[in-house]
Design a protein around this nucleic acid. Structure first.
Lengths: 218, 218
DNA sequence: CCTTATACGGTACTCACCGTACCCTGTGTG
DNA sequence: CACACAGGGTACGGTGAGTACCGTATAAGG
């Protein structure tokens, strides 16, 4: 089965080139990723499914991982409209739950596999980052935080990318250090209630500390 | 060169067994890790250096990654006495800088390589976690925080593992999402000044929010 | 319409490494 | 002293990355 690389409708004698062929390869690679995950993504298999050969692949991507990343980008649709539950806590938990289910889904496994396979190569990681990669954009967190500030639930100084992304960083950290199974919902609420909400709420200077900006290098 | 697996002092006819052989294997594996990193850690090479063969290896570890993890544990000494600079900010930055230099060092690269190779296997990740793995124990952060509470620099409610580990999680997140190069010092101070210190300082309830414990599931 | 550079397709091959299978031999134990 | 067992030597099967040719369809250019 699946010996044919082209659809039956296409004339078998048509030789694909350029963008058309690239499309077919990426489609095949994405299919393999979905079916067999990152370890199953072999150049031979992708070439076979695309009805071409490894030459065409290596002419476009330098190695297996690069192809995998390119293929993943078409798998990850930009599915993140920030939630609006009316409270910061609700929004936070909703975002965390979305991300958690994405990361523990097959797509999340693929993403984690690719991150691992990238082995810290900055270019590959960058390509993996933008396309809705973690199931939640940084931008979404900022708008969500912005609404909270408007409602008076959060201090204006908290409207900072580094602050906004704290919950996602903590969640990702769970996956990195603990491994595959989905993170328990209790952890999500703990991240929200013990870290994010307190952080975002009170930032009034009540402890004696040096100037928060322009640190004098301890 | 390096054809001989045993030291010249040893009688060549002595056949090592049990713990002695295991020692030799782990020593060889750690050596390979140091010289060639995780990708260079091949079973053949380790067996060659240890002056034995792959049988002895597979009799003890199920696969290459397991051996790598075991070898790493002897590389990572327990080098973390929590700093005591007198201020929470100083301690925090010191811890972050230590961790940053560990993670960007060759040892950090090995650790990151092993985490990647573990592919999310919980057991392997667990073995990687305890031995000073990230260059900073959770315990160290807790004692450091405890001192800050005693000095009045931090609110008592902040003495919580999830809170204490926030800086490390954020730092690790940088490595995971950005890749190899060392994290800039400015990022460390930002983590301290924009996130950790504000979080730990003011936790007074000043925004209107539902009960922080026992969430009613949004 | 013919020529030509280019990219496809097909195939075979090298290389490295994982993991396994034998088989012989040294060693500690009963 | 016999024997079970682990160590040592070696070879092998299998898989997948990446490379090398070589003939050929196709698009571009004269």
């Amino acid at each position: 089965m699946a010996r044919a690389g082209r659809e039956p409708g296409q004339a078998a004698s048509t030789r694909r080139r350029g963008a058309a062929l690239e499309e077919a390869i990426l489609r095949a690679a994405a299919e393999v990723l979905r079916e067999s995950g990152v370890p199953g993504l072999t150049m031979d298999e992708v070439a076979r499914r695309a009805g071409t050969n490894k030459n065409a692949l290596y002419r476009r991507w330098p190695n297996r991982v690069a192809l995998g990343v390119a293929a993943y980008r078409r798998l990850a649709a930009a599915r993140t409209a920030p939630p609006d539950t009316g409270s910061l806590r609700g929004d936070t938990l909703e975002m965390l739950r979305r991300a958690n289910s994405t990361w523990s889904s097959p797509y999340g496994e693929i993403l984690r596999g690719l991150i691992a396979a990238a082995g810290g190569t900055p270019e590959l990681l960058a390509q993996l980052r933008d396309p809705a990669a973690d199931g939640a954009h940084e931008a979404a967190w900022l708008t969500l935080l912005g609404r909270a500030v408007a409602r008076g639930e959060a201090a204006p100084e908290a409207l900072h990318p580094r602050v906004a992304y704290v919950p996602m960083a903590l969640l990702r950290n769970e996956y990195v250090t603990l491994g595959t199974p989905a993170v328990a919902d209790a952890v999500l609420t703990e991240i929200a209630d013990e870290v994010f909400l307190p952080l975002v709420r009170g930032r009034g200077p009540q402890g004696g500390t040096p100037a928060p900006q322009a640190p004098p290098r301890a």
